[in-house]
């Protein structure tokens, strides 16, 4: 039993793990070929746009794509009428596209740059809904001993664990195999 959910933000591209972070690599090379971290990040923003625009094109979907740098992380936003298809059931398509985007960008940059993707503000809306649900279920667990949440993505399960961690008297853990994995909350007694 563990309250630690795998961090969904953890990049997981083994082919870049052997590479030092961009910041260190930028210090290496000679002055002519040296790429600054800023340059690596700016290139990665362009790669992100190319990947998502190319993917939308391949999927035959319309959408506006924007990417920006914030605190050395890349945030990509898609808006438009195709949002339902791009989000998918329980946000699974969105998670999958984000995984692929991150893998592609990190491979290109040879660095574990943080990359997040959102479609029409889905993550914020969903975050609020999941956190409310987590609080309700924690209350139920306190009364009844245990409560089970519906199947969720790794990102959503992490949100639940974070909420439960702030509530005294309950613990949470995940059970089941993907894509059926879900959070169980139990009272500590």
């Amino acid at each position: 039993m563990s309250t630690n959910e795998m961090d969904p933000q953890t990049p997981e591209v083994e082919d870049v793990l052997s590479q030092p972070p961009a910041r260190e690599r930028a210090r290496d090379g000679d002055s002519e070929t040296e790429l600054s971290l800023q340059q690596v990040l700016e290139d990665a923003v362009e790669d992100s746009l190319d990947f998502i625009e190319g993917l939308l094109d391949a999927m035959d979907l319309d959408g506006e794509v924007a990417a920006e740098l914030r605190d050395d992380a890349i945030e990509v936003q898609i808006s438009g009428e195709s949002s339902g298809i791009l989000i998918g059931r329980h946000g699974r398509t969105l998670e999958a596209i984000q995984d692929l985007l991150r893998t592609a960008v990190q491979r290109q940059a040879q660095s574990r740059i943080r990359v997040t993707l959102d479609v029409e503000g889905y993550r914020d809306r969903r975050k609020e809904a999941v956190e409310n649900q987590a609080r309700e279920m924690a209350e139920r667990a306190l009364k009844e001993g245990e409560a089970e949440l519906p199947e969720m993505s790794a990102f959503e399960r992490k949100l639940v664990h974070d909420v439960v961690a702030t509530i005294e008297g309950v613990v949470s853990f995940s059970e089941g195999e993907e894509p059926r994995r879900r959070v169980i909350i139990q009272s500590e007694e």
Binding site: I85, I97, L100
Partner: peptide
């Protein structure tokens, strides 16, 4: 990918396109 994660993501997105 690690633990088949990339393969799973590919399948999910290709399924979405087919749907």
């Amino acid at each position: 990918g690690r633990n088949g994660r990339t393969a799973r993501a590919i399948r999910t997105v290709v399924k979405a396109a087919a749907a």
